[in-house]
Amino acid sequence: MTNFTLPYPKLSPRQFAWDTAVLFVAVFWLGGSLILDLVVMPMLYMSGMMTAPGFASAGYGLFELFNHLEMLLSGLILTGVLSMRHAHGERAVEISGSRSRWALFLSGGLIAIALTYTYVLTPYMGAIGIALDMPGIIHIVPNAMNWMHGAYWFLESIKVLALGFLLTLCYSDIAAQFTEHN
């Protein structure tokens, strides 16, 4: 029988590739965010979501679920970055002091953005939306809702940029590991 082996670095049972885990979590989060922002939300908006009764509770439910998922993913990324700082490899993100600080800063910023979404923007936008959802009320979007949408898109652009930069940090380390073993 032929034994096929891959030239990739092998992990012992007690070792975990945190840079790979951070890479996969960041890709998953970035993909989910882009699908929500560029596919789901435009479709809901174009279908008349803002004028439909019950849009506030549906929007709050969707964003509350996604915000809690974002808090989980940001926590996993911070855990991965801190773990890489503790047990770094020969060419890891954490060997370089500036790259280490950038990775830590980015992961902390991602947690701050997820917390801001979960505990500031989504509850206030949901409360304003519920007031618009009452029967007999003329559906005029208040200026506060427009301001919060602007704050959401600003934070969303920062989040996408931070995830992209974190992806480049982790990918370069993983690519270096694979090129060393070939």
Rank of each mutant, 00 (worst) to 15 (best):
F4Y: 10
S12M: 09
P13Q: 03
P13E: 03
F16A: 09
A17S: 09
W18V: 04
W18Y: 15
A21Y: 15
L23H: 11
V25G: 07
V25F: 15
A26K: 03
G32H: 03
L36V: 03
D37R: 04
V39W: 11
V39R: 06
V40E: 02
P42Y: 04
M43C: 07
L44Y: 13
M46F: 14
S47F: 04
G48E: 01
T51M: 12
P53W: 14
S57I: 15
E64K: 12
E64D: 10
F66M: 07
N67V: 02
H68G: 01
L69W: 12
L72D: 00
S74H: 08
L76M: 13
L76T: 01
I77P: 04
I77R: 05
T79F: 15
V81E: 02
L82M: 12
L82G: 01
M84T: 07
H88G: 14
G89S: 10
E90G: 06
V93M: 11
V93Q: 02
I95M: 10
I95S: 07
S98H: 10
R99N: 13
S100G: 10
F105E: 00
G108F: 08
Y117E: 00
L121K: 07
A127T: 06
A127Q: 10
A127V: 05
A127P: 09
I128Y: 14
I128F: 15
L132M: 13
D133K: 12
P135E: 00
G136A: 05
I138Y: 14
I138F: 15
H139L: 13
I140W: 15
I140V: 15
V141H: 11
N146C: 03
N146E: 08
W147E: 10
M148W: 02
L155N: 08
L155I: 05
I158W: 13
K159I: 08
V160W: 15
V160N: 07
A162H: 08
L166K: 07
T168D: 00
S172C: 03
D173T: 09
A176P: 02
A176M: 12
Q177N: 09
F178A: 03
E180K: 08
H181V: 09
H181D: 02
H181K: 11
N182A: 07
N182S: 08
N182L: 07
